[in-house]
Design a protein around this nucleic acid. Structure first.
Lengths: 198, 198
DNA sequence: TTCTTTAATATAACGCTGTTATGTTCAATC
DNA sequence: GATTGAACATAACAGCGTTATATTAAAGAA
């Protein structure tokens, strides 16, 4: 990759990590990268292109959070570690997290390439959550199951990130979240052992 | 309320319903309301003031969605109707929904008055979700429980609103959501009957 | 080497945003 | 009738993403 291109991307990444999307102006990225504003347009497709790169970075973080050695772990334990990793990632990279979930007014919509990365990440999520299901579960059930876990996990993250969180004075937010999710996972497991035994 | 003030608020509300926060520029509100741009600053505190009003509107919609006759309904049925109402509201007023959950880059943070309305809405949620718990449940448990339901419900809404939703081709999104939530509600109920009986 | 072509840079501008300073008009109060 | 104060309009400010134009540097061909 070009030097200038890499410098721009790094400057954007740093600014984004610090101040979220509010700190990401084309002029400020260019200034921090030591290039002219027009450089953002020759090396990327303007701000849209920058956001696309950060979007992809975001989903790579999601995948890293769910990528660990699963050997000798029970399905439930794998889920628990995945969930913990997800929460930790969401806290450490709030900007990226908000970007990939469209939580900014900007008219940004991910490119096809970016969407492919998103689908890949969902594929990984699908693989992990499928551990809770019988081996012969069909695709529709796997999708429903993955979405179920994801919605629950993301719900906690999203509420935590937003202003409404100040209503609760809950220091152990993600401990509570993990408890609730474990309960739900038990319920899912129970459903299928029940179905299998009849 | 002043005529001009009411006209501004209605114009803002209409523009917001149509095109979300992207359609909400001070000049466009003023134009639609038939006032000068400066009118937004004399009648409200600029755009911040407008957003505050819409934020309050949003939480009033949340409260309306959970406000129905509960007489002769089981706790689970009350929950089910509340959840349905919440989903319907979130679909019909996506702009408001995204605003109250901070899903826009704007540096907007709700005023004290707006936060009070938010807390009031949470109080109502607390009352409904407490139906699932034993009468002697303490406040911490009620909070945990309400947050649990809210995170799950909001997770489905938030994923549906955002770009990642296109990964699934799920026409019956909210049916699936209701199923998953019912399962979770059963698990909660089971936990407490179990605790009571031992 | 010289000429031409192409890519990267710089400057300045366009139309938009939220906000505000400056006048102006009009109604109410002393 | 004079004065005060609120609502109004106009125009401007600094910032935004983006782009047209001009300039420079480098590479390829004669």
């Amino acid at each position: 990759m070009n030097i200038a291109k890499r410098k721009i991307l790094q400057a954007a990444s740093e600014l984004f990590l610090e101040g979220g999307i509010a700190a990401l102006s084309v002029r400020s990225i260019a200034k921090h990268a030591g290039v002219s504003t027009i450089g953002i347009y020759s090396h990327f497709q303007g701000k849209e292109g920058i956001l696309d790169e950060l979007y992809i970075q975001g989903f790579e973080l999601v995948m890293q959070a769910m990528d660990f050695e699963q050997h000798d772990l029970s399905p439930k334990e794998v889920m628990r570690r995945g969930i913990r990793g997800y929460f930790a990632m969401a806290e450490a990279h709030e900007g990226h997290y908000r970007l990939i979930f469209g939580e900014n007014d900007s008219r940004y919509t991910p490119s096809e390439e970016a969407k492919n990365v998103a689908e890949k990440a969902f594929g990984q999520l699908l693989k992990v959550t499928a551990l809770l299901l019988p081996d012969d579960a069909n695709m529709a059930l796997k999708h429903k199951n993955a979405l179920e876990i994801w919605a629950f996990v993301h719900g906690y993250v999203s509420l935590k990130h937003h202003a409404v969180a100040s209503i609760f004075e809950t220091p152990d937010w993600y401990v509570m979240a993990e408890d609730a999710l474990c309960m739900h996972i038990d319920a899912i497991l129970a459903t299928h052992t029940h179905l299998n035994s009849e």
